[in-house]
């Protein structure tokens, strides 16, 4: 599903050059639940951003869902992300000015769909994460766990083949983190969604199919 070949990422400023990733070769199979671990600053999030086509590698090539991501225009990239990838962030990144239902509908705004279809799909996604009773709340009225469940609903509403989760339980206590993890496992198991998750938590990583470890930008396991 995801094929990374010789991926390198170098950040350059006028005086400093930082190698964030070097020679990453990674294949993620369809329906796999992969976790990425490593110390802070080892390049986990950078790798995830590259997989999500939010960032470009300095060298190397990416194939996602049988498409070569190189040389896509801004518009084509946007369309590809919208159809294929769902994101879950550690800090949720919900839009506080919009109600829960509107937040979940967001990816569908960039597709051809009617308001009725959007609402229907958003309600179904919220049902899956157990938040159908919070549709009219604003994010600021929710707990951290509830916010992350809204973020998951937003990530799955467009039925993407891939979900990229950047420390989805990082800001949650263990009970809430387990709830969120259970939802992700269920999604992977029941719907066959490919999931790549960055985490610091060994226990969470153990629940996934495979673990990849990074150290100083290189793959060590």
């Amino acid at each position: 599903m995801i094929h990374l070949q010789n991926i390198e990422k170098v950040y350059r400023t006028d005086t400093v050059e930082t190698q964030a990733l070097s020679s990453i070769n990674l294949n993620v199979a369809k329906g796999e639940f992969l976790s990425i671990m490593g110390p802070s600053g080892c390049g986990k999030s950078t790798l995830l951003n590259i997989m999500g086509l939010l960032d470009e590698p300095t060298r190397g090539s990416i194939r996602i869902a049988d498409s070569t991501a190189d040389k896509l225009s801004d518009k084509q990239l946007a369309h590809f992300r919208n159809r294929t990838i769902g994101f879950i962030f550690q800090s949720y990144h919900l839009i506080n000015d919009l109600r829960v239902l509107d937040n979940v509908e967001l990816p569908l705004l960039y597709r051809k769909s009617t308001a009725k279809e959007r609402k229907q799909l958003a309600l179904e996604a919220l049902e899956k994460v157990g938040l159908s009773n919070r549709t009219k709340h604003f994010p600021t009225q929710l707990s951290g766990g509830q916010k992350q469940r809204v973020a998951i609903a937003r990530a799955i509403v467009g039925q993407p083949e891939i979900i990229l989760a950047d420390e989805p339980t990082g800001n949650l206590d263990s009970a809430m983190g387990s709830d969120v993890m259970d939802i992700l496992i269920r999604l992977n198991k029941d719907e066959g969604t490919t999931i790549v998750m960055v985490t610091h938590d060994e226990n969470m990583a153990r629940k996934t199919h495979r673990l990849v470890r990074l150290f100083d930008g290189s793959q060590v396991q």
């Binding site: 990239l77 946007a78 369309h79 992300r81 159809r83 967001l106 960039y110």
Partner: peptide
């Protein structure tokens, strides 16, 4: 977030 979920720059 909008960009990540499919909004183009335009």
């Amino acid at each position: 977030v909008r960009k990540a979920f499919g909004a183009s720059s335009g």
